[in-house]
């Protein structure tokens, strides 16, 4: 019997590809946002709203889904150059899938790349895609304890959107508890309360994306 020193970084390859992706984007002046959140939290409708309200920024999108191209079709219909990426049994996008998606997108003149991750508050946390900002969308319908139950994703995000605030009372959710939990976990986190349906908070949200794209 002998000992073999291996010292191999099991997850390092994802980070290497992510760095390559970031370089690819930087060279083209494209800012990328990794949009994470649970199933039904409002990721796709947010992109549809941005398509409507952020007309002076040229955008492209990568829509991650386990299966189906439903989200990709919605985003395309909203007027954004989009490629759908299916992950199959994997519950998150990884840098490698993004690398492949680059080759299928027309990125000419694009300033902002929106990457809609698979609906999941757990697994996408650990996967750098090569993005410049990470955002998480939680909605009041997930329960006002959803933030404290999934702390990891909030640790790494730059922006937290608390969505569907218009129906918080109807579902018995305390929005301020969600805000306080998110602030406690990550004091640097920018928090915007929205309703994609009524338009609450959308001006602030659109401004955030515009500043990122033009900044």
């Amino acid at each position: 019997m002998h000992i073999i020193n291996v010292n191999r970084d099991i997850i390092g390859i994802n980070r290497k590809i992510a760095e390559r992706n970031r370089k690819f984007l930087d060279e083209r002046g494209i800012r990328a946002v990794n949009i994470m959140g649970a199933i039904g939290s409002g990721k796709t409708i947010m992109i549809e709203e941005l398509a409507e309200k952020l007309k002076d920024v040229r955008m492209a999108a990568i829509a991650g889904d386990v299966i189906s191209d439903a989200d990709a079709r919605r985003i395309k219909k909203a007027g954004i150059e989009t490629i759908g990426v299916n992950t199959g049994t994997e519950c998150h996008l990884d840098a490698h899938l993004i690398d492949h998606a680059f080759g299928k997108l027309n990125l000419g003149g694009v300033e902002l790349l929106l990457i809609e991750n698979v609906g999941n508050l757990v697994c996408p946390t650990d996967f750098d895609l090569g993005e410049h900002r990470k955002i998480v969308i939680v909605s009041v319908t997930e329960g006002d304890d959803t933030v404290e139950k999934h702390p990891a994703i909030f640790v790494y995000c730059d922006l937290c959107i608390i969505n569907k605030v218009d129906i918080a009372d109807a579902v018995g959710a305390d929005v301020e508890k969600m805000v306080a939990d998110a602030r406690r976990i990550n004091p640097r986190l920018r928090i915007i309360k929205t309703s994609m349906k009524t338009g609450d908070g959308l001006d602030e949200l659109v401004k955030w994306f515009k500043e990122l794209a033009k900044g």
């Binding site: 019997m1 073999i4 020193n5 291996v6 099991i10 650990d126 976990i185 004091p187």
Partner: peptide, 21 residues
């Protein structure tokens, strides 16, 4: 006790060594 932290280490998985015949 600040929670405003920049993580420097603790995000890796390293296969250090194996014992084999």
């Amino acid at each position: 006790q600040s929670r405003d932290l920049e993580i420097l280490e603790g995000r890796g998985i390293i296969l250090k060594k194996i014992e084999a015949d």
